[in-house]
């Protein structure tokens, strides 16, 4: 018999290393004569879109089409430390470092631009990679300005470090003033169907509301929700590296199963954007939070469907059938 159930989970995630660890990111932005804006960061793009996010932030601050931005420095000998791509920290940390470096460069654009135009900053307009003192007046491009600045022996280049403080918690009580830089919150509701004859679970719908501060790239945030949730469903329903007496007995992808395209639910998601966090443009990190709700939401839906509570993961058909048997 097929039984339907609905479960909910709300979660939080404190991101960044926190706990007083010296967590920071260094970035550099440079406008070159050859019509490129180089953003130098050692941050790793694991697929989530780090390079794109940094590109958008630099483009926004420097008021220029993203196609001019080039991310460089994916090399220990070509860029300074950006910290890890982990702890859901890159948008917040490297994003802020890139934003600050880009703002520094913007300051230089105004500074040298005002010398060139013989005017003061408020009279200058900067738009689409050009600056000018009035609508009809002469315009110069960033690249021309870079050339002029170079002739003065200077550069349109700046480095910035984003280094917010956290505090180590007390060793005995875990208490502290600021343990993590910020928290991300999410609520998910999940609809499932349990086949009481086979113990198989089908996940029908996942409804998600994610508190992101601001989405720098909404499509990529949805990509995190979907990817994270499906990975979380793997944990909830199937994934289990079985290590017996120190020996893994399922070290391949036939016996260690992860979700396939046949296992995915429908998604409906909302991003809560209050622009109220400390990341660039009010954003906060979302990478890890998106995996966290799936296993409890599924477990709670199983209870709703068939009245059994499974307290160990993964919730396999075998566990479902055993629990149903016990309940009888």
């Amino acid at each position: 018999m097929k039984k339907q159930g609905r479960g909910m989970a709300s979660i939080m995630f404190g991101f960044g290393y926190g706990e007083g660890f010296p967590d920071h990111s260094i970035a550099e932005v440079e406008i070159t004569k050859d019509k490129r804006i180089k953003v130098r960061t050692a941050g790793a793009d694991l697929g989530q879109g780090f390079l794109t996010t940094m590109t958008q932030i630099a483009a926004e601050v420097l008021k220029i089409d993203p196609s001019y931005i080039e991310i460089v420095g994916q090399d220990t000998h070509k860029a300074k430390n950006s910290g890890s791509t982990s702890a859901t920290r890159q948008t917040f940390f490297s994003g802020n470092a890139v934003r600050e470096a880009a703002e520094e460069v913007m300051g230089k654009i105004y500074h040298y631009g005002s010398l060139y135009f013989n005017s003061n900053h408020p009279e200058l307009t900067v738009k689409d990679g050009e600056l000018y003192a009035c609508d009809e007046c002469e315009k110069i491009t960033y690249w021309e300005l870079a050339e002029i600045v170079e002739q003065r022996g200077k550069e349109l280049k700046a480095e910035a470090t984003f280094f917010p403080k956290t505090y180590a918690p007390d060793r005995k009580t875990g208490q502290g003033e600021k343990i993590y830089v910020a928290y991300t919150f999410m609520t998910q509701v999940m609809d499932i169907e349990v086949d009481t004859d086979t113990g198989l679970i089908e996940v029908m719908n996942v409804y998600t509301a994610l508190d992101v501060g601001r989405a720098i790239n909404p499509q990529n945030v949805h990509g995190q929700i979907e990817g994270g949730t499906v990975q979380g469903l793997g944990m909830a329903m199937m994934e289990d590296q079985v290590i017996e007496e120190g020996i893994t007995i399922n070290a391949d992808m036939t016996n260690y199963l992860v979700p396939s395209i046949q296992d995915i639910p429908n998604f409906e998601s909302t991003l809560i954007e209050n622009n109220d966090s400390g990341g660039p443009f009010g954003s906060k990190g979302v990478g890890e939070p998106t995996i966290i709700g799936a296993s409890p939401a599924l477990s709670n839906a199983v209870y709703d469907a068939i009245g059994v509570r499974i307290k160990s993961l993964p919730i396999t058909p075998e566990k479902i059938l055993n629990a149903l048997e016990e309940k009888k």
Binding site: M8, G14, G176, E177, I179, Q188, E268, T270, N274, D276
Partner: peptide, 21 residues
């Protein structure tokens, strides 16, 4: 014991997710 000073929109996530569902 960390006091949350800003960007705590959990309640809105509950409202929105339940609305969607």
């Amino acid at each position: 014991g960390q006091k949350l000073g800003k960007s705590v929109n959990l309640k809105r996530t509950i409202e929105s997710a339940t609305d969607l569902a």
